[in-house]
Each structure stands twice: as C-alpha cells, then as structure tokens.
Amino acid sequence: MITQQSIQSDCISRSDFETLFNDHYSRLCAYAYNFIKEQEGSEEIVQEVFFKLWINRSDIKIESSIISYLYRAVRNASLNLIKHINIRENYKQHNKEQIEQSEQLDSDPLNVSELEKKIRASIDLLPEQRKKIFILSRYEQLKYKEIAEKLGISIKTVENQMGKALQFLRKELVEYLPLLIIFFNHLINGE
C-alpha cells in the first residue's frame, strides 16, 4: 500500500506504482466516464493523472491520501474537459445530472465495500470481449439482440459470452454473497 510518505519521498518503486495503477485504473476511468461520457477521453484523463503523479512525485503536495488525490485530479480534469468541449446537445442535460449525482457520490468516493472491490476486480478479469458484452448488458441494459448488432456478432455469441461471464462472476463472488442466509430461510420455511 502506498502511503503519503512513500509517494513523496523519491523511493517509491515503479512496481509499487504499478500496483497503485492496477488497483485504481478501472474505477478512475469509470469515474471520469461518469462526467465526460466518452471512454477514450476517460482513459486519456486517467493516464495523464497517473503520468503527472509519477513525474512530479517529489513535488506534488498531497494533503490527504494518495487515493483521494487521484479521484480529485480525475474529477478536476474531467470537469475541465467538459468546460472546454461543446458537448453534443443531448448530452448536456445528462451530464448535468451526472455531475450532480457524482457530487453526492463524491462526498465519500473512497468508501468502498469489500464486495464492491471484489466485483470490480472480477469484472476486470473477464476477457475483453466478454467484459464488453457483460457491461453492455448489465450497465447499459441492452438486450442480447442490441448487443449483437452493436458489436457486429451473432446473438448466439452474446448468449454464450454472457453465460460464461455470469458463471465466472458467480464463482468469483459466491463467498461474498449473503446467500447462505437465504438458503437457510428456504430450509426453515420448508420451501
């Protein structure tokens, strides 16, 4: 775990930095995406924040934790981008809502449960195509048919990939899910 002290002294190693990057990259991208609604741009922002953090590691004054520094930097860069782009009209209102929403979210963006961490890490582990399909289904609420059209693949492939994704995530997450209790309820109620 990288602490405030270690990032400020010059002795943080590249591999510690890699760990920090791996632990937070996906979620920071998702955080940026919340504001700017564009994946490529989100990744650019997060890359840039990490890049600056590394090259300025001896100069940057980090007042709270390194994690909240990252989130604040990503948010500032995202908002700055929005200010400078004429975002397509239909996104404007949406963005406004998103910013309001994420400001609430931002009140404690770092308070993440173990389960949530595990879910994110598990989604990250999915192969690229499967991850894409899962995210389109789960978070964009697209039907199989729509996903197939969007990605230019067959519905059968979407079905199979979703099956594998859900199977994998169930196995990954099973011990974190509070299902045992429900299972006992079934027994007690004689269902």
């Binding site: 791996n22 996906s26 995210i135 299902l179 429900i182």
Partner: peptide
C-alpha cells in the same frame, strides 16, 4: 438464487464500470 444475487449486486456499483484494459493501459 446465487446467479440472481450476483446479478443484483453487480448492478449496485457506482460509478458503473466501463470496459477498459488496464494491463494494456499500464
């Protein structure tokens, strides 16, 4: 039930994930 529970739990996370490739990014 497990599958359903997993599905419901994954839906709760916010910000919602996007399909990034962090190994490539690194």
């Amino acid at each position: 039930d497990q599958l359903e529970e997993m599905w419901l739990e994954t839906g709760k996370i916010n910000p919602r994930p996007i399909p990034v490739n962090k190994h490539l990014a690194w």
